[in-house]
Amino acid sequence: MTTAHRTELPENAGRPGLEVSRPGRPSVGRVFLAILWRDAFVTGKEFGLLLVQIALTPLFMLFIFAKVLGTLNYVRPEFGDLLLPGIAALAAFLTALQSVAYPLVMEFGVTREMEDRLLAPLPVHLVAVEKLLMATLRGLVASACIFPLGALVLGDAPWRAAGMPLLLLVLALGSWAGAAIGITVGTLVPPHRISIMFALIMAPLMFTGATQYPLVSLDDLRWFQVVSALNPLTYTSEGVRAALVPSIPHVQPWLCVLALTGYALAFTAAGIAAFRHRAQK
């Protein structure tokens, strides 16, 4: 006589209203924070390399234009107070732009690492937002590093506690705008043309961004004033000056905030749209 084999079922199996418990799918917020933490962790491990990338060009500009030319009496001693805020703005803006543009070009076109990220249980647009947020944070870190390093180069640095809220707001908006431009460029430009594109973008951004001069002082050079006024970096530089050295002529802070917000929103929308289009190819 054979014994019938029975399959063991959970106690609640077959009962109405009761289901077998299954491990839940992680929430979108949890996945987003996990990816953000992973990128932040990698950034922390590579902080030395990031610091070199951040500091090299801006500090050389600060050293040559303020320290060397000041020692030779080609510029006034107080030129450093005008230049350092512009260099901090430049570091925030360009670090955010480069931190997302170059990796996106590589991940979409060469290493194909973006395919792994897109497999995460996360909407495509949030993958782009995570990249945007991480690049913005890197821009803020870059600007924070410039102030003590600039003080070492110049001997001191302009500082005004009352301007801290405006300073943080302008640097955050400037980093966001730079990151949004980086996403747009990184998704629209093919890998074999990225070097040419950056050559066409970087120099005009750096030298028409009011990092070395106040925008309002260009009344006698109107065409260049108009060109500079079209550059989002200009409003970052002017906003940082308004926060730290308001005695130097500058664009009104509310206009800097308004312009940076407009640029950031416009390029964020364009960048996310381009990212989604590229991800669906």
Rank of each mutant, 00 (worst) to 15 (best):
F207V: 03
F147T: 14
L9C: 06
A89C: 00
E130D: 14
A120H: 00
R241W: 01
L258M: 12
R278D: 07
C256F: 05
M106T: 15
L33Q: 11
L83Y: 05
V185T: 14
L260Y: 10
M206R: 09
I181Y: 02
G14T: 02
L265M: 06
V75R: 02
C256V: 07
V141L: 15
Q53P: 05
L169D: 10
R241T: 10
F267N: 12
G178S: 01
P165K: 11
A162V: 13
A210V: 09
R160G: 02
I35P: 04
E113F: 13
I181H: 01
L167A: 02
S228N: 06
H5G: 06
L62V: 09
I183A: 04
T111D: 15
A274M: 10
L9N: 08
L218M: 15
L94Q: 13
F198Y: 11
A203D: 08
F79M: 09
T2M: 12
H250W: 04
G155T: 12
D81W: 09
P85T: 00
I201D: 02
G17Y: 05
P148Y: 06
E19F: 11
L233W: 05
I272V: 15
I64E: 04
V240W: 04
I272R: 10
R112I: 04
F198L: 14
V227D: 03
F108T: 05
M206Y: 00
A151D: 00
L59H: 06
T268Q: 01
M134D: 13
F224W: 10
G262R: 01
A120V: 11
F60G: 04
A180D: 03
V100W: 02
L97A: 02
L154Q: 06
I196P: 03
A243Q: 03
G109I: 09
I183T: 03
L152P: 07
L62F: 05
P253V: 10
L215K: 05
D39V: 09
A172N: 04
